Amino acid sequence: MKITSLVALFLFAVQFAFSQSEKPVQGKVTTDGFPTGGIEVINQTNGSVVVTDVSGKFSIPAKVGDVLIFAGKNYTARKITLNQKDFGKTGVETSMNQEAIQLVEVEITKEVDDVKLVPPIVEPLRSVDNILNNSPNNMMVYNGSIKDGLNFVAIGKMIGKLFKKKKDKVITHVEMKEYVSDNFNKDFFLNTLKLKEDEIEIFLEFCYADPKMATLVNDNNVLETSDFLISKKEEFRKLKN
């Protein structure tokens, strides 16, 4: 009985050690049932990155509990947490959704000047002598002038409004914090960025002050945001020193 208990304890210890050590996890990414190549697979926990091949397959070092992020251009990013069954024969199977192409809104406004119609002035009939005489009052002879010319000011306003751009959305610090909280866990800052726990909040405030952070949050680009945080870590370290 005692020997059986020792064997069970040994097997439990081996299984626990296996779950805490990294090993390659296999997987496949598809879109509408078809293999999807060129998708970046990011292990948010240890910082490693791989790209799916033409068959949509990938292999990345990980362990149970690690968070994988799947991101690609024109695709909605996905995030999963690995469990023990993901390290089996079937591996990780993930389906990506293509993002809808958003058209830029263009506002076209028709502008009409307030023009009053004036009845034409009827000139009295002139004699043959006056018609043949090229005088300033002779309406039968073109003198090179343009009557009632184009209103170039109004035309300029109409063209300007055709190219009027939509204002960018202003991203607040609250929205930035929610975005970081949803996409990056504590292990990313402690293990990948090598920050101390009491430095994380100060580092994030340092990142929020950079206008590029708001642009990345507005574009919902997890991969570029991860690269941005890694680059800002070096600036933060220099500031501390």
Rank of each mutant, 00 (worst) to 15 (best):
M1H: 08
M1Q: 07
I3V: 07
L9F: 09
F10Y: 13
L11S: 14
V14T: 11
V14C: 15
F16W: 14
F18A: 12
F18H: 13
F18Y: 14
Q20A: 10
P24M: 04
V25M: 07
Q26R: 15
G27L: 00
G27A: 07
V29L: 02
G33L: 00
G33Y: 05
F34E: 06
V41G: 02
I42A: 09
T45I: 02
S48Q: 05
V54A: 06
S55E: 04
G56S: 03
S59N: 08
A62D: 01
V64R: 11
G65Q: 12
D66R: 03
V67M: 02
V67N: 02
G72D: 00
K73C: 00
T76Y: 02
T76A: 04
R78W: 04
K79Y: 06
K79L: 08
I80E: 01
I80V: 05
T81G: 05
L82R: 03
L82C: 03
N83G: 13
K85S: 10
D86M: 15
F87E: 07
G91W: 04
G91Q: 05
V92S: 00
T94E: 01
M96Q: 00
M96K: 02
M96N: 01
L103Q: 08
V104D: 12
E105K: 12
I108V: 05
E111P: 03
E111Q: 06
E111H: 05
V112Y: 05
D113I: 07
V115K: 03
K116L: 00
V122L: 12
P124H: 08
R126C: 06
N133P: 01
P136K: 12
N138W: 15
N138D: 14
N138Q: 13
N138P: 06
G144E: 02
I146H: 08
D148H: 01
G149N: 07
K157D: 04
K161V: 03
K166H: 12
K169L: 10
K169R: 14
V170T: 14
Y179K: 13
Y179R: 11
Y179G: 06
S181P: 02
S181W: 12
D182S: 13
F188L: 10
T192V: 10
K194S: 09
K196S: 12
K196A: 12
K196R: 15
I200P: 03
E201N: 13
I202F: 10
F203Q: 04
A209L: 12
D210G: 14
P211W: 14
A214R: 13
T215F: 13
L216Q: 09
V217P: 05
D227R: 15
L229G: 02
S231N: 11
K232M: 15
K233N: 04
E235V: 14
F236N: 09
L239R: 15
